[in-house]
Structures are given as structure tokens and as C-alpha cells.
């Protein structure tokens, strides 16, 4: 079955990584240093300016970690796979995937499943746990369930958007520039949404719903103003993920079905 196949693939990938253990660990360490740098700069900033749009340092740390954690989970299933799609379509190696007797999307994402995001997950998870400890939140069962759902949903939003960009590859072949836009927009959600103008707020809520990844869930948990949407918007957060991911998947499969090769 598919799950068994996925397990087998993961097993092989771990084996592959462990063959160059030193290199893998060094890269993981370097990524932790790199993201640690981002955290340190924000921390230095918050030391000097204790409130950013009404948010304190542990709150910003929670917001940032939510974004990074969901990105790491979502991207391990999508980013590198979708980025390399362009080369595969151009060189025709994508055809190899289509003749396998399993769902090509499933095969693509599991074969390319990226273990390198372990570093992202380690640092964002650690800071997230620290931030939760610092914050004065009533940790009811409902809140825990909500956090869990929000993480899953956030990861699905990120993966769904990256998948949709991958689908654009079938249409235009050259779609790498969309990743650049995605990462630029993702920078906005490191900070509370009310900092930015209405246009950016609406863009990140409706157009590219990245605000549902971390801002709306965090605003709910921390009882902050969740403008531009009313308070009940937080219940949308767990729904937006499956919706975006489903749309991304549909776009991808319909793109793959129309795929005729890059020509030549």
C-alpha cells in the first residue's frame, strides 16, 4: 500500500543521509545558526522596543515559530520537489514519473521528502515551547487541540501554495520566479498583520492566505486584535489549510494531466 511505500522511501532517505552523517549534521547546525540569527535580531529589537503593534517578545517569538514550523513541515513535502519540477519538465525526465503505476504526485513528494528541514523544526519547535511557557495562556484541552489543528492547517497552507506554484510549471515551464514572490510574501507573516496597510492585510488574508498560517491562530490564542477579520475568523484557520492544499493538489493533477512535454 501507499503508506508502506512511503515508509520504505523514508527509510531509504534516512539511510542516504546517514551515509554522509558529518555533512548532514554540519548543515543542520548551520541552518540552526542561520535561523538563530533571525531570532536574535528580533530579540535585540524587542529588548529596545518592548511592544510591536501591541505584541511582546514571547508573543512575537510564538508568531515567528509558528510560521517557521509550519513552513518546515509543509516544505518538506513540497518545496524542493516543486522547485526541481522545472528541470524535470524541461529535460523530459518527468515522463519517468508518469509511467509508474502509482499516483505521480504522491510519488514525487515522497521521493523528494526532505529530511533537511529537521533543523528548522528543531529550532522553531524549541522556541515555540519556550514561548508557550512564557505566555499567560489558559491551556485548556480546547486550546491544545486548536494549536495542533492550526499547525497542521498552516503546514497545509504552505504546502498547498508551493504545490500550486509547482502546477504553474506545467503551464509555463519557467515558474521559478513565483517561489521568489512566495518567499517575499512569507516575510510579512513574521510580524503581526496590523503593522501593514489594508492592501497587504487583504492580500495575505484572501489572495495568498498566509495570514491564516500563524497570525489568526496566534491572535486568537493571545487574545489580540485580529483585524481585518472579526474574532470568529480564528475558526476558519483550521479549514483554510485543507482548502488551500486541496486546491493546490487539484491544480497540480490537472496540470500534470495536460502535460505534453516541454517540446523538442
Amino acid at each position: 500500500m501507499n503508506i508502506a511505500l512511503f515508509g520504505k522511501l523514508i527509510q531509504l532517505l534516512i539511510k542516504e543521509k546517514m551515509a554522509y552523517r558529518g555533512d548532514f549534521l554540519l548543515s543542520a547546525f548551520a541552518q540552526i545558526v542561520s535561523y538563530g540569527g533571525e531570532y536574535i535580531v528580533i530579540w535585540l529589537f524587542m529588548k529596545r522596543f518592548p511592544l510591536l503593534a501591541g505584541w511582546t517578545w514571547p508573543e512575537i517569538a510564538l508568531l515567528y515559530s509558528f510560521g517557521l514550523l509550519t513552513y518546515a513541515i509543509g516544505a518538506s513535502f513540497s518545496f524542493v520537489q516543486m522547485r526541481e519540477l522545472e528541470g524535470q519538465v524541461r529535460q523530459g525526465t518527468f515522463d519517468n514519473l508518469l509511467i509508474k503505476p502509482i499516483n505521480p504526485y504522491f510519488y514525487l513528494i515522497s521521493r523528494g521528502f526532505n529530511l533537511a528541514y529537521v533543523a528548522h523544526i528543531t529550532i522553531s519547535g524549541a522556541v515555540l515551547i519556550w514561548a508557550i511557557g512564557q505566555l499567560n495562556v489558559q491551556w485548556t484541552l480546547l486550546n491544545w487541540a486548536y494549536v495542533l489543528l492550526a499547525v497542521v492547517s498552516g503546514a497545509m497552507i504552505q504546502a498547498g501554495l508551493l504545490t500550486a506554484i509547482g502546477a504553474a510549471t506545467f503551464l509555463w515551464v519557467r515558474a521559478g520566479f513565483l517561489f521568489t514572490i512566495f518567499f517575499r510574501l512569507k516575510e510579512f507573516i513574521s510580524y503581526p498583520l496590523p503593522l501593514f496597510g489594508t492592501f497587504i492585510q487583504l492580500l495575505l488574508t484572501i489572495g495568498v492566505p498566509l495570514a491564516f498560517v500563524n497570525f489568526y491562530p496566534a491572535a486568537f490564542l493571545l487574545a489580540h486584535d485580529s483585524a481585518p477579520l472579526p474574532g470568529w475568523a480564528m475558526w476558519l484557520a483550521p479549514l483554510v489549510g485543507p482548502l488551500v492544499y486541496g486546491l493546490g493538489y487539484l491544480l497540480w493533477t490537472s496540470g500534470a494531466n495536460k502535460y505534453q512535454g516541454a517540446g523538442g
Binding site: F29, A30, Q31, V33, S34, G36, G37, I40
Partner: peptide, 14 residues
């Protein structure tokens, strides 16, 4: 060079 580039990036950020 990836690991070193990441580290350099981190140092530059800070």
C-alpha cells in the same frame, strides 16, 4: 559550501 554559507548568513544577520 552550503553549511558555511548558511553560517556566514547567520553571522551577517546578527
Amino acid at each position: 559550501h552550503f553549511a558555511l554559507s548558511w553560517m556566514l548568513g547567520g553571522l551577517i544577520t546578527i
